[in-house]
Design a protein around this nucleic acid. Structure first.
Length: 558
RNA sequence: UGUCUGAUGGUGUAACUGGCAACACGUCUGGUUUUGGUCCAGAAGAGUCCAGGUUCGAGCCCUGGUCGGACAACCA
């Protein structure tokens, strides 16, 4: 951590940090306050992690604070379940907020702001229907036209707005609109709707209100009420900034400022909450926390660590241009961490029997280091016996040139055990290999090898009678297209049909029996795995977080 | 025919604010290795969207284009 901080000092500031740095140096602020403003209508994903990393990270870096504020102005899509998951995810990522607020905390204040605007002649109640408003809005190249209700008197507007609040009108029959400019080149300034009628139960305010403020009438004011200094959001809000500033200026309240950065995208996946919800609802995945999902909860279940995710956000960086981050950077970040921290274990995915013909003891207990990258990690016992399993793909009858694995007449090292020489094999009537015969070199025992032999390959293995059966779930990318944004048609057409491969019975060394879900493992030569929540004491299930880097398969493809 | 916004190796970020384009991922070589992992050493790969201009000097400034994205939800 300290090293990371030192690195950060040397690192150039991103453009947001530069703005803040300047504001602080010029004395514009004594300290800064940011906010992370999720809408509780879905689960957080890796894109949110980037925003969290930025908002919380930048505040911490400059000695400021960050509020968590739920943007809950639309009761029909928002739920408490989402509030809870969002809070859990932020905490899990390692951040803590100075205050927990809700836009709905400010409904009274916002209502008063609306009254103020009406009183100033800056807002009016409109009777137009949604269709009519849309029709009069104009287009980006054509100006809109004024509503016939635009010139109502202040008193009439005040009365009508109060009646709206009292529930005297039907949903959709009236709105409160800002009186700005129907000819503005910025569509958002063409008398935007400030309040609409919704007879919906709100997750926090219940049925107290039947009118709810729109985003544009809630966000900037909420920032202002909290004295947020730097309100950081994504690029699509750039046109909203004019309205954000207009509200603050007309209301003459604390001037928070909005800054925009490009949202994070990752190749081979989707990031929109709408699409993720669709994947969940249509059962393309098992839920929001399906390990293939780019959600924080999905990644957590898959075995990603908060450190790896934050590291990824840090390396991906922040800019104003739209971008597509390579998923291989994310994978690099997990491997980097897991390589240093995870215990090594041996698991045979697709077994073939190996008989050590010259081993006649019942068993031998060997020692294997838990993690060669960490000297303090200790050792675990590994039983060795006459009958072993190795990976079927680690043996070839007619091996090609650079096959450093088992083949007749060839010697290989069994990891943490002995060097063995393959002497022959047996097949069934169909020609399938049923048994491989080897002799072992007793003097070649790991750690005390006096054999003087040199071998090219080392294999993982497991003693058949000691092995425990486990279920493995191997995940591939959820989509076949690198960039879904540029694809034609329904994004679901690009779902990878083989994104989940289940190996219902794999054979693991007994040390894995007491695995806990807090642990991460490297299954030797296979990848990083973690215990899944579907595990039962007698039926352990492991999720593959990511494979190891593999250069041999590339070699084969040549 | 609009407004806003952006454009630097395959990808993502830099470039001390005008001084011969750097870092990371990825790719490829070679070495070490009881994981074809890690680690170590090295290489290839952009001349900065285009055309002009200012300047001794431009990725950074100016002008004009080109291309991409956003903008017409009672969503956020």
């Amino acid at each position: 951590m300290d090293a990371a901080l030192n690195n950060e000092k040397a690192k150039p500031l991103n453009f947001i940090e530069e703005i803040i740095d300047n504001d602080l140096k010029q004395g514009k602020y004594q300290s800064i306050l940011t906010r992370f403003p999720p809408e509780p209508n879905g689960y957080l994903h890796i894109g949110h992690a980037s925003s969290i990393w930025l908002n919380f990270g930048v505040a911490k870096k400059f000695g400021g604070k960050t509020n968590l504020r739920f943007d809950d102005t639309n009761p029909v899509t928002e739920e408490t379940e989402y509030v809870e998951s969002i809070k859990a995810d932020i905490k899990w990522l390692g951040y803590s907020w100075a205050n927990e607020f809700y836009a709905s905390d400010y409904f009274d204040q916002l209502y008063n702001y609306a009254i103020q605007l009406i009183s100033q002649g800056d807002a009016y109640v409109d009777d137009l229907t949604p269709d009519e408003i849309a029709a009069q809005k104009g287009t980006p190249t054509e100006p809109g036209i004024n509503s016939p209700f635009r010139s109502r008197t202040i008193d009439e507007n005040l009365q009508l707005f109060e009646a709206m609040k009292a529930g005297n009108f039907q949903e959709g029959s009236k709105t409160l609109r800002a009186k700005i400019d129907m000819a503005s080149v910025n569509m958002l300034l063409r008398d935007p709707i400030l309040y609409r009628i919704k007879f919906a139960h709100h997750h926090r305010t219940g049925d107290t209100w039947c009118i709810y403020p729109m985003y544009d009438f809630a966000h900037g004011q909420s920032d202002s009420i909290e004295n947020i200094t730097h309100s950081i959001c994504t690029l699509e809000f750039i046109p909203h900034r004019a309205l954000y500033d207009w509200c603050i200026q007309k209301l003459n309240i604390y001037p928070s400022h909005q800054y925009e950065f490009a949202r994070l995208n990752v190749s081979y996946t989707v990031m929109s909450k709408r699409k993720l919800l669709q994947l969940v609802n249509e059962k393309h995945v098992s839920g929001w926390d399906d390990p293939r999902m780019p959600t924080i909860s999905g990644m957590r279940r898959r075995g990603y660590t908060p450190q790896a995710i934050n590291e990824f956000c840090d390396r991906a960086g922040i800019a104003k241009r739209e971008k597509l981050n390579d998923i291989s950077l994310l994978e690099f970040c997990v491997r980097e961490e897991l390589n240093k921290s995870s215990f090594r274990r041996m698991v045979v995915f697709d077994p073939v029997k190996v008989i050590i013909t010259n081993f006649n003891e019942s068993e031998l207990l060997l020692e294997g280091e838990n993690n060669p990258e960490d000297e303090t990690s200790g050792f675990r016992a590994i039983p060795f016996s006459k009958e072993l399993f190795i990976e079927r793909e680690d043996f070839m009858e007619n091996p090609p040139k650079k096959f450093f694995r088992m083949a007749i007449g060839q010697s290989v090292r069994l990891k943490s055990a002995f060097i063995v020489t393959c002497t022959g094999l047996e097949k069934d009537v169909n020609g399938n290999i049923t048994e491989i015969h080897c002799t072992y070199i007793p003097e070649s025992k790991s750690g005390s090898d006096t054999s003087g032999m040199k071998v090219q390959g080392t294999l993982h293995w497991v003693s058949s009678k000691h092995a425990i059966k486990v279920e493995l779930r191997e995940y591939e990318r959820l989509f076949l297209s690198e960039n879904l944004a540029t694809e034609e048609g329904d994004f679901k057409e690009y779902i990878n049909p083989e994104s989940l491969k289940i190996i219902s019975t794999a054979y693991a060394e007994p040390a894995l029996e007491n695995a806990t879900d807090a642990q991460r493992f490297q299954f030797l030569r296979k990848g990083y795995f973690c215990l899944d929540k579907d595990s039962q004491p007698a039926h352990l299930v492991f999720n593959r977080t990511v494979t190891l880097k593999e250069s041999f398969s590339k070699e084969v493809k040549k």
